[in-house]
Design a protein around this nucleic acid. Sequence first.
DNA 1: CTTAGGAATGATAATCATTATCATAACGGG
DNA 2: CCCGTTATGATAATGATTATCATTCCTAAG
Lengths: 129, 129
Amino acid sequence: MTQVHCTRAQTAVLQLLRQQREPISAQALYTLIKQQQRIGLATVYRALDALKRMGRVQHRVTLTGETLYNAVEQDRHYMTCLDCGQSFPLNTCPLKGLASSLQHSSSFTIYYHTLEFFGLCEPCSVQGG
Amino acid sequence: MTQVHCTRAQTAVLQLLRQQREPISAQALYTLIKQQQRIGLATVYRALDALKRMGRVQHRVTLTGETLYNAVEQDRHYMTCLDCGQSFPLNTCPLKGLASSLQHSSSFTIYYHTLEFFGLCEPCSVQGG
DNA sequence: CTTAGGAATGATAATCATTATCATAACGGG
DNA sequence: CCCGTTATGATAATGATTATCATTCCTAAG
Protein backbone atom coordinates (compact mmCIF):
# COMPACT_ATOMS: atom_id res chain seq x y z
CA MET A 1 0.00 0.00 0.00
CA THR A 2 2.49 2.58 1.13
CA GLN A 3 4.95 3.20 -1.60
CA VAL A 4 8.67 3.36 -1.07
CA HIS A 5 10.15 3.67 -4.53
CA CYS A 6 8.89 5.82 -7.36
CA THR A 7 7.28 4.09 -10.27
CA ARG A 8 8.45 4.68 -13.79
CA ALA A 9 5.68 7.19 -14.38
CA GLN A 10 6.33 9.04 -11.14
CA THR A 11 10.00 9.33 -11.99
CA ALA A 12 9.26 10.73 -15.42
CA VAL A 13 6.69 13.17 -14.07
CA LEU A 14 8.93 14.42 -11.30
CA GLN A 15 11.89 14.84 -13.58
CA LEU A 16 9.88 16.83 -16.09
CA LEU A 17 8.31 18.95 -13.40
CA ARG A 18 11.74 19.92 -12.14
CA GLN A 19 12.64 21.15 -15.59
CA GLN A 20 9.65 23.49 -15.76
CA ARG A 21 10.00 27.11 -14.82
CA GLU A 22 6.32 27.50 -14.14
CA PRO A 23 3.61 25.21 -12.81
CA ILE A 24 2.10 23.04 -15.49
CA SER A 25 -1.17 21.19 -15.98
CA ALA A 26 -1.56 17.42 -16.06
CA GLN A 27 -2.59 17.50 -19.68
CA ALA A 28 0.40 19.58 -20.74
CA LEU A 29 2.64 17.24 -18.79
CA TYR A 30 1.03 14.32 -20.58
CA THR A 31 1.84 15.84 -23.95
CA LEU A 32 5.45 16.35 -22.93
CA ILE A 33 6.00 12.88 -21.54
CA LYS A 34 4.41 11.21 -24.54
CA GLN A 35 7.28 12.53 -26.62
CA GLN A 36 9.64 10.42 -24.56
CA GLN A 37 7.70 7.30 -23.70
CA ARG A 38 4.40 5.53 -24.03
CA ILE A 39 2.11 6.72 -21.27
CA GLY A 40 -1.57 7.17 -20.58
CA LEU A 41 -3.22 10.33 -19.34
CA ALA A 42 -4.66 8.50 -16.34
CA THR A 43 -1.19 7.43 -15.33
CA VAL A 44 -0.02 11.01 -15.33
CA TYR A 45 -2.86 11.93 -13.01
CA ARG A 46 -2.08 8.96 -10.79
CA ALA A 47 1.59 9.85 -10.62
CA LEU A 48 0.82 13.47 -9.78
CA ASP A 49 -1.54 12.42 -7.05
CA ALA A 50 1.00 10.04 -5.56
CA LEU A 51 3.78 12.63 -5.68
CA LYS A 52 1.48 15.14 -4.07
CA ARG A 53 0.77 12.76 -1.21
CA MET A 54 4.49 12.24 -0.78
CA GLY A 55 4.98 15.96 -0.47
CA ARG A 56 7.23 16.18 -3.51
CA VAL A 57 4.80 18.02 -5.73
CA GLN A 58 2.49 20.88 -4.92
CA HIS A 59 -0.59 22.05 -6.71
CA ARG A 60 -2.85 25.00 -7.20
CA VAL A 61 -6.10 25.46 -9.08
CA THR A 62 -6.48 28.28 -11.56
CA LEU A 63 -9.54 30.46 -12.02
CA THR A 64 -10.47 28.40 -15.06
CA GLY A 65 -10.47 25.26 -12.95
CA GLU A 66 -7.40 23.46 -14.14
CA THR A 67 -4.91 22.20 -11.63
CA LEU A 68 -1.27 23.19 -12.04
CA TYR A 69 1.60 21.26 -10.52
CA ASN A 70 5.17 22.05 -9.65
CA ALA A 71 8.02 20.46 -7.73
CA VAL A 72 8.03 21.58 -4.10
CA GLU A 73 11.56 22.88 -4.52
CA GLN A 74 10.03 25.71 -6.51
CA ASP A 75 7.68 27.21 -4.00
CA ARG A 76 5.77 29.58 -6.22
CA HIS A 77 2.92 31.91 -5.40
CA TYR A 78 0.90 34.32 -7.43
CA MET A 79 -1.32 37.33 -7.60
CA THR A 80 -4.22 36.65 -9.91
CA CYS A 81 -6.41 39.27 -11.53
CA LEU A 82 -10.10 38.50 -11.12
CA ASP A 83 -10.86 40.46 -14.28
CA CYS A 84 -8.40 39.32 -16.94
CA GLY A 85 -7.37 36.13 -15.18
CA GLN A 86 -3.65 36.73 -15.55
CA SER A 87 -1.35 35.49 -12.80
CA PHE A 88 1.70 37.41 -11.68
CA PRO A 89 4.34 35.52 -9.70
CA LEU A 90 5.57 36.80 -6.37
CA ASN A 91 9.31 36.90 -6.13
CA THR A 92 9.30 35.63 -2.58
CA CYS A 93 6.99 33.77 -0.25
CA PRO A 94 5.59 36.05 2.47
CA LEU A 95 5.26 33.01 4.72
CA LYS A 96 8.94 32.21 4.76
CA GLY A 97 9.70 31.13 8.29
CA LEU A 98 6.14 31.25 9.48
CA ALA A 99 5.20 27.77 8.31
CA SER A 100 7.69 26.13 10.61
CA SER A 101 6.28 27.81 13.69
CA LEU A 102 2.82 26.72 12.66
CA GLN A 103 4.17 23.24 12.36
CA HIS A 104 5.02 23.20 16.04
CA SER A 105 1.68 24.45 17.20
CA SER A 106 -0.18 21.44 15.95
CA SER A 107 0.10 17.77 15.27
CA PHE A 108 -0.27 18.34 11.57
CA THR A 109 2.70 17.50 9.34
CA ILE A 110 2.97 20.19 6.70
CA TYR A 111 4.30 19.24 3.29
CA TYR A 112 3.57 22.41 1.38
CA HIS A 113 1.19 25.31 1.17
CA THR A 114 -0.56 27.34 -1.45
CA LEU A 115 -0.91 31.07 -1.23
CA GLU A 116 -2.60 33.20 -3.80
CA PHE A 117 -3.70 36.81 -3.87
CA PHE A 118 -6.74 37.81 -5.85
CA GLY A 119 -7.69 41.28 -6.99
CA LEU A 120 -7.19 43.53 -9.96
CA CYS A 121 -4.03 44.12 -11.93
CA GLU A 122 -3.27 47.71 -12.82
CA PRO A 123 -4.66 47.76 -16.38
CA CYS A 124 -7.93 46.15 -15.32
CA SER A 125 -8.11 48.37 -12.27
CA VAL A 126 -7.79 51.51 -14.38
CA GLN A 127 -10.45 50.48 -16.88
CA GLY A 128 -12.82 50.01 -14.00
CA GLY A 129 -13.26 46.33 -13.28
CA MET B 1 -21.04 46.87 -17.93
CA THR B 2 -19.59 47.65 -14.55
CA GLN B 3 -22.16 46.96 -11.93
CA VAL B 4 -22.96 49.34 -9.13
CA HIS B 5 -25.88 47.77 -7.36
CA CYS B 6 -26.33 44.15 -6.45
CA THR B 7 -28.89 42.14 -8.34
CA ARG B 8 -31.57 40.23 -6.55
CA ALA B 9 -29.59 37.01 -6.82
CA GLN B 10 -26.37 38.63 -5.63
CA THR B 11 -28.13 40.03 -2.61
CA ALA B 12 -29.59 36.67 -1.69
CA VAL B 13 -26.28 34.91 -2.17
CA LEU B 14 -24.31 37.40 -0.14
CA GLN B 15 -26.82 37.39 2.67
CA LEU B 16 -26.81 33.63 2.92
CA LEU B 17 -23.03 33.45 2.72
CA ARG B 18 -22.78 35.78 5.68
CA GLN B 19 -24.93 33.44 7.69
CA GLN B 20 -22.66 30.48 7.07
CA ARG B 21 -20.03 29.52 9.57
CA GLU B 22 -17.97 27.65 7.04
CA PRO B 23 -17.35 28.10 3.31
CA ILE B 24 -20.03 26.51 1.19
CA SER B 25 -20.30 25.21 -2.35
CA ALA B 26 -22.36 26.76 -5.12
CA GLN B 27 -24.63 23.76 -5.25
CA ALA B 28 -25.29 23.77 -1.51
CA LEU B 29 -25.99 27.49 -1.72
CA TYR B 30 -28.39 26.81 -4.54
CA THR B 31 -30.30 24.33 -2.41
CA LEU B 32 -30.53 26.83 0.41
CA ILE B 33 -31.70 29.73 -1.69
CA LYS B 34 -34.29 27.66 -3.49
CA GLN B 35 -36.10 27.31 -0.20
CA GLN B 36 -36.64 31.04 -0.17
CA GLN B 37 -37.11 32.01 -3.78
CA ARG B 38 -37.20 30.74 -7.34
CA ILE B 39 -33.65 30.68 -8.65
CA GLY B 40 -31.57 28.78 -11.17
CA LEU B 41 -28.26 27.11 -10.50
CA ALA B 42 -26.58 29.13 -13.23
CA THR B 43 -27.70 32.32 -11.55
CA VAL B 44 -26.04 31.25 -8.33
CA TYR B 45 -22.80 30.70 -10.18
CA ARG B 46 -23.14 34.03 -11.92
CA ALA B 47 -23.81 35.83 -8.66
CA LEU B 48 -20.86 34.18 -6.96
CA ASP B 49 -18.60 35.11 -9.81
CA ALA B 50 -19.78 38.71 -9.74
CA LEU B 51 -19.37 38.99 -5.98
CA LYS B 52 -15.92 37.49 -6.28
CA ARG B 53 -14.92 40.12 -8.81
CA MET B 54 -16.22 42.80 -6.48
CA GLY B 55 -14.03 41.46 -3.72
CA ARG B 56 -16.95 40.65 -1.45
CA VAL B 57 -16.65 36.91 -1.66
CA GLN B 58 -13.61 34.71 -1.61
CA HIS B 59 -13.16 31.19 -2.82
CA ARG B 60 -11.01 28.14 -2.45
CA VAL B 61 -10.98 24.82 -4.25
CA THR B 62 -11.06 21.59 -2.28
CA LEU B 63 -9.07 18.47 -3.05
CA THR B 64 -12.16 16.96 -4.61
CA GLY B 65 -12.40 19.84 -7.02
CA GLU B 66 -15.39 21.72 -5.76
CA THR B 67 -15.15 25.42 -5.11
CA LEU B 68 -16.19 26.75 -1.73
CA TYR B 69 -17.20 30.34 -1.14
CA ASN B 70 -17.37 32.59 1.88
CA ALA B 71 -17.88 36.26 2.63
CA VAL B 72 -14.56 38.11 2.80
CA GLU B 73 -15.38 39.23 6.31
CA GLN B 74 -14.69 35.67 7.38
CA ASP B 75 -11.14 35.22 6.24
CA ARG B 76 -10.76 31.49 6.73
CA HIS B 77 -7.81 29.27 6.03
CA TYR B 78 -7.19 25.58 6.45
CA MET B 79 -4.81 22.73 6.82
CA THR B 80 -5.86 19.87 4.60
CA CYS B 81 -4.77 16.27 4.95
CA LEU B 82 -3.60 14.80 1.67
CA ASP B 83 -4.53 11.33 2.87
CA CYS B 84 -8.01 11.53 4.36
CA GLY B 85 -8.93 14.84 2.75
CA GLN B 86 -10.18 16.45 5.95
CA SER B 87 -9.68 20.18 6.40
CA PHE B 88 -8.83 21.74 9.73
CA PRO B 89 -9.40 25.48 10.14
CA LEU B 90 -6.64 27.76 11.35
CA ASN B 91 -7.75 30.01 14.15
CA THR B 92 -5.85 32.95 12.74
CA CYS B 93 -4.38 34.08 9.45
CA PRO B 94 -0.57 33.94 9.50
CA LEU B 95 -0.54 36.71 6.91
CA LYS B 96 -2.27 39.24 9.08
CA GLY B 97 -0.58 42.52 8.37
CA LEU B 98 1.63 41.19 5.63
CA ALA B 99 -0.86 41.58 2.84
CA SER B 100 -1.00 45.32 3.23
CA SER B 101 2.74 45.70 2.84
CA LEU B 102 2.60 43.59 -0.26
CA GLN B 103 -0.13 45.86 -1.51
CA HIS B 104 2.26 48.80 -1.49
CA SER B 105 5.02 47.04 -3.30
CA SER B 106 3.06 46.62 -6.48
CA SER B 107 0.34 48.14 -8.57
CA PHE B 108 -1.92 45.21 -7.89
CA THR B 109 -5.11 45.84 -5.91
CA ILE B 110 -5.61 42.95 -3.52
CA TYR B 111 -9.15 41.96 -2.63
CA TYR B 112 -8.48 38.74 -0.80
CA HIS B 113 -6.13 35.82 -0.61
CA THR B 114 -6.27 32.09 -0.15
CA LEU B 115 -3.84 30.23 2.00
CA GLU B 116 -3.91 26.51 2.57
CA PHE B 117 -1.49 24.08 4.14
CA PHE B 118 -1.29 20.53 2.86
CA GLY B 119 0.19 17.55 4.61
CA LEU B 120 -0.90 14.78 6.92
CA CYS B 121 -3.12 15.00 9.95
CA GLU B 122 -1.99 13.09 13.00
CA PRO B 123 -4.09 9.94 12.57
CA CYS B 124 -3.06 9.54 8.94
CA SER B 125 0.52 10.37 9.78
CA VAL B 126 0.67 7.63 12.40
CA GLN B 127 -0.82 4.96 10.18
CA GLY B 128 1.90 5.66 7.68
CA GLY B 129 0.59 7.79 4.87
C1' DC C 1 14.63 -20.25 -15.24
C1' DT C 2 9.66 -20.37 -14.41
C1' DT C 3 5.80 -18.94 -12.30
C1' DA C 4 2.19 -16.86 -9.22
C1' DG C 5 0.39 -12.67 -6.94
C1' DG C 6 0.19 -8.01 -6.67
C1' DA C 7 0.92 -3.50 -8.36
C1' DA C 8 1.13 -0.38 -12.32
C1' DT C 9 -0.38 0.92 -16.77
C1' DG C 10 -3.10 2.39 -20.98
C1' DA C 11 -7.31 3.10 -23.22
C1' DT C 12 -11.55 4.67 -22.70
C1' DA C 13 -16.04 5.30 -20.55
C1' DA C 14 -18.20 7.76 -16.84
C1' DT C 15 -18.63 11.56 -13.56
C1' DC C 16 -19.58 15.96 -12.08
C1' DA C 17 -18.80 20.79 -11.25
C1' DT C 18 -19.01 24.60 -14.02
C1' DT C 19 -20.23 27.30 -18.43
C1' DA C 20 -22.56 28.38 -22.57
C1' DT C 21 -26.83 28.94 -24.81
C1' DC C 22 -31.11 30.87 -25.60
C1' DA C 23 -35.72 32.15 -24.90
C1' DT C 24 -38.16 34.75 -21.45
C1' DA C 25 -38.82 38.03 -17.67
C1' DA C 26 -37.57 42.13 -15.16
C1' DC C 27 -35.89 46.68 -15.22
C1' DG C 28 -34.91 51.72 -16.19
C1' DG C 29 -35.08 55.68 -18.84
C1' DG C 30 -37.35 58.51 -22.10
C1' DC D 1 -46.33 52.80 -21.96
C1' DC D 2 -42.62 51.33 -25.01
C1' DC D 3 -37.80 50.04 -26.22
C1' DG D 4 -33.30 48.49 -25.37
C1' DT D 5 -30.60 46.39 -21.99
C1' DT D 6 -29.58 43.30 -18.37
C1' DA D 7 -30.77 39.44 -15.43
C1' DT D 8 -32.76 34.99 -15.02
C1' DG D 9 -34.06 29.89 -15.46
C1' DA D 10 -33.83 25.70 -17.66
C1' DT D 11 -31.06 22.82 -19.84
C1' DA D 12 -27.47 21.29 -23.03
C1' DA D 13 -22.53 21.31 -23.58
C1' DT D 14 -17.88 21.38 -21.91
C1' DG D 15 -13.80 19.76 -20.00
C1' DA D 16 -10.88 18.31 -16.36
C1' DT D 17 -10.55 14.49 -13.52
C1' DT D 18 -11.73 9.68 -12.00
C1' DA D 19 -13.34 4.97 -12.38
C1' DT D 20 -13.10 0.76 -14.79
C1' DC D 21 -10.98 -3.17 -16.54
C1' DA D 22 -8.15 -5.98 -19.25
C1' DT D 23 -3.22 -6.25 -19.93
C1' DT D 24 1.61 -5.73 -18.75
C1' DC D 25 5.30 -5.33 -15.59
C1' DC D 26 7.75 -6.64 -11.22
C1' DT D 27 9.28 -9.19 -7.61
C1' DA D 28 10.16 -12.95 -5.00
C1' DA D 29 9.48 -17.79 -4.16
C1' DG D 30 10.09 -22.34 -5.89
